[in-house]
Design a protein around this nucleic acid. Structure first.
Lengths: 259, 259
DNA sequence: AAACACTATTCCGTAATACGAAACATGGAG
DNA sequence: CTCCATGTTTCGTATTACGGAATAGTGTTT
């Protein structure tokens, strides 16, 4: 409306499509007409057009219109083509140069995180992590906590129940209460710390890559031996890390951690 | 053009949108213009319109256009409203555990079935199927036959006429007579087999989820490589499959396949 | 059973809308 | 620096989508 360069019929068609997608049991021409303020015949014409393409379905008996599965098909194409690794590559490499430490990209799968990409720093990289495809539970890693901080509490609770929680090191959080407090802290700060919770002698700072809903399945971390990871160092890593995550999130069409 | 009631700008916009969804790394205006035969300024105008709504994303630096996440959002609305998926979730997961194979839920739409949910088994899952939103004709899939077996012959006949029947594999049934015989067998047994009719090397057993009238629009299948799908194996899958379908049917307020 | 009320669908004259040629930026290559 | 290629904006035009009104189709009331 206010927007200048917009094709009227397209705009109207998308209004209709969005209404149909959100309605549970479909809508009639009349209903759509009332809701959008468009003339009945206009609604009818636009819907017919979308019907022939499968974006909308018309119940022949009742003339109730619903969203068609074609949209889901397109959505699945998009998902398939979302090559996170590819889109994360450049931001990760820059983060690696800026920090001179090892950078990891992980994705959540079931109750674990899986390492899917890594950039190693110039200086004595910590070798222990490294293997692409390696898994760790969500609950005992910085990246896992960063991801879970974007999930609703109910889902985190379910996951906690399903997880076989055990102390990987003396620092691992094993109480659900303490874990929820920790997630609160992550949400407040915008990043998560792994303070030898997964592996002794290794500290890392991690941040999530949220999708368009603000929910994350991916995260990035910067890891280093504890000797190089003072609190001051972490404070200085925060900025570059969040910048990189925001870049990746945008490249994936998602939202950002910070405005 | 050939189609009667279709809004030109809409049709063109969807052409563009579909191309973008299928392209891995986005496309330029020029590419889209060449592909569709539309004038570049027309492409530009339509894309701008879709950009403001989030259906398309424009990389500011390179002016490469990609499909936006808005489509995924709409798709998720549709999925949320399809509560079949929700009601089928637990029975399908149990069926997956019991059989240790890939389980699919499909719905009929027009002359096709659409995959709407999937549970992958622990062992070497067959990846080829999988894409949620993917379509196949009713006539050449086990799930399709299971659904059609609940329809009156007249409707099956109409559908057969409207379908562009062709052999997907050497095993696909392409004669209407043979097809009706096959449906008789499905009705007698209570389940359908897909014996490499859709994809070579893959066998599956499928059963319908009938509504209160006994008519089905949904079906569930268990698929596996032919090596794991002997006749004995199929006999042993029958029980768990039918049980799962009955559970889902009851959850949806429908009738049951068996007493 | 007939008339009614309501909604979807089709028709068609009109002008607003989307179109596309061409001019104008922009940016990369040689 | 110039050229070339590609994206962006402008603007006059007629094609296209619009919407009022007529029609068909459904279910409901008296």
């Amino acid at each position: 409306m206010a927007e200048s360069s917009s094709v009227q019929s397209l705009d109207r068609a998308f209004d209709l499509l969005e209404l149909l997608c959100k309605s549970r049991n479909g809508m009639t021409i009349g209903g759509l007409s009332a809701e959008t303020g468009l003339h009945k015949s206009t609604v009818h014409r636009l819907l017919s057009s979308m019907c022939t393409r499968g974006y909308v379905q018309r119940d022949a008996a009742t003339s109730i219109y619903r969203a068609g599965m074609r949209l889901c098909e397109l959505s699945s194409y998009i998902m398939d083509n979302l090559d996170v690794v590819e889109r994360a590559r450049l931001p990760m490499e820059r983060l690696g140069r800026e920090t001179d430490e090892t950078v990891h990209l992980v994705m959540q799968e079931e109750r674990d995180i899986v390492y899917i990409h890594k950039v190693e720093s110039g200086r004595g990289a910590i070798r222990m992590f490294s293997r692409i495809g390696m898994r760790r539970p969500l609950y005992c890693t910085g990246v896992g906590k960063a991801i879970l901080a974007t999930w609703p509490d109910s889902e985190v609770h379910t996951l906690w129940q399903e997880s076989d929680v055990k102390p990987w090191t003396a620092h691992t959080i094993v109480s659900e209460d303490a874990f929820f407090h920790e997630l609160e802290r992550v949400r407040r700060l915008g990043y998560a710390l792994d303070d030898e919770e997964n592996e002794l002698g290794v500290r890392c700072i991690a941040a999530a890559i949220p999708d368009y809903r603000g929910r994350a399945s991916y995260a990035v971390s910067v890891s280093a031996p504890i000797s190089r990871m003072s609190d001051e160092r972490i404070a200085s890593l925060r900025g570059p890390l969040l910048t990189a995550c925001d870049e990746i999130a945008v490249a994936l069409g998602g939202s950002m951690n910070r405005g």
